[in-house]
């Protein structure tokens, strides 16, 4: 049955070779992308380069004098799995959303890295306490992200006068994800539920949290808030579960929202900021986190203009004219699947 050269074997080898070629392009070949800007009085010119085929967006906005985060510390909770069930039992409304240990922390880091935000450190409870103490005098430009339903009791123990809240009021930025802000803390004795209105401890006033005991799907909405930023940054996460209503507070909301709640809320607190990302731990939220932090948005950001176009194995550019006092330009490629980003400040 077999001939000297078997056409079927040859075809098989060719197709296997195609897979290996794909392997090379997956791991051994990089697409080069870069961006540069040139600021002038009242205008900025930019240039985007790509050795591949991309859609770029240049988003111009004004931060109104607020200092954005340029160094981010992510708190990795080593007790996450240990107390997760207990936290669910102790929750009044919606249960904290689950994520897989250190994996999501790494994913946040990668999501920021591809957008040009490299200054990210992962810290444990002791590291968090140490950070807050050492940077307490001037925490401006430093962000702390809590990817857990609880923080260590050494920095917050269910009251307004604590290391974490004082640090924020001094100018630090807190990013909170996927659970009711401030509801739990942990110490050597285990998990504790903070009694009373814990949002007031952080914001200085009571802030409604969207965590009624409903199905996670019931929080999904297609209504945009702050449509300029939402469309310009291609924000995707469309659920408001654990989002906050910032009516009466100084700040901005982004993404999707309903009845005052939004998927992303950034609130001015003292000299600092609290940003709450609603919804579960998923790709949409990861991309939104990357977009918001890497673009250096703050609670005082105001959208100015978006320019977009194709950049195909070439270099393209454009110019904005503006009258903003504190302009930032975030350039990224890939649209809803952002694969490169760079932020520039005048």
């Amino acid at each position: 049955m077999s001939s000297k050269i078997d056409g079927i074997a040859v075809l098989a080898v060719v197709l296997i070779a195609a897979v290996f070629a794909g392997e090379y392009f997956t791991y051994g070949h990089d697409t080069d992308r870069s961006a540069s800007v040139s600021w002038d009085t009242g205008s900025v010119s930019y240039s985007v380069d790509s050795s591949g085929s991309d859609e770029y967006r240049a988003v111009l906005f004004d931060n109104g004098g607020y200092t954005p985060v340029d160094t981010l510390y992510i708190y990795a909770d080593g007790t996450y799995d240990r107390y997760y069930s207990q936290a669910c039992e102790l929750s009044d409304g919606a249960e904290p959303l689950y994520m897989e240990g250190d994996y999501y922390v790494e994913q946040v880091r990668e999501s920021l890295k591809i957008r040009g935000f490299d200054d990210v450190c992962i810290i444990d409870g002791e590291g968090l306490e140490d950070l807050l103490r050492t940077t307490m005098p001037s925490p401006s430009g430093i962000g702390v992200m809590v990817i857990s339903y609880a923080v260590p009791g050494s920095v917050y123990s269910g009251g307004p006068d604590c290391l974490l809240v004082n640090w924020i009021n001094n100018g630090g930025s807190l990013y909170w994800l996927s659970s009711e802000i401030g509801r739990f803390y942990t110490d050597g004795l285990g998990l504790h539920r903070a009694e009373g209105d814990c949002t007031a401890y952080f914001f200085g006033t009571s802030v409604p949290v969207d965590c009624s005991d409903g199905d996670s799907l019931s929080y999904i909405t297609g209504k945009t808030v702050n449509t300029g930023f939402t469309e310009a940054l291609c924000l995707k996460n469309s659920t408001t579960e654990f989002g906050i209503d910032i009516s009466g507070l100084s700040g901005i909301q982004l993404g999707f929202g309903e009845e005052g709640y939004a998927s992303i809320s950034m609130v001015s607190v003292g000299a600092g900021m609290i940003c709450v990302f609603a919804g579960g731990f998923d790709i949409d939220q990861l991309d939104d986190i990357g977009q918001v932090i890497a673009s250096k948005l703050t609670c005082g950001s105001t959208f100015i203009e978006l320019q977009r176009g194709k950049v195909t194995r070439d270099s393209v550019g454009g110019t904005f004219s503006f009258s903003a006092s504190d302009p930032y330009l975030f350039i990224y490629t890939g649209g809803v699947y952002a694969n490169f980003g760079a932020c520039f400040h005048a």
């Binding site: 195609a18 897979v19 290996f20 070629a21 794909g22 392997e23 090379y24 392009f25 997956t26 791991y27 070949h29 697409t31 050795s51 591949g52 085929s53 194709k310 195909t312 194995r313």
Partner: peptide, 16 residues
């Protein structure tokens, strides 16, 4: 995934 890598390379090299 490698086939998608090949697709990606094709898009980058030949399409817009």
């Amino acid at each position: 995934g490698y086939m998608l890598g090949l697709v990606s390379a094709f898009q980058n090299a030949c399409l817009s």
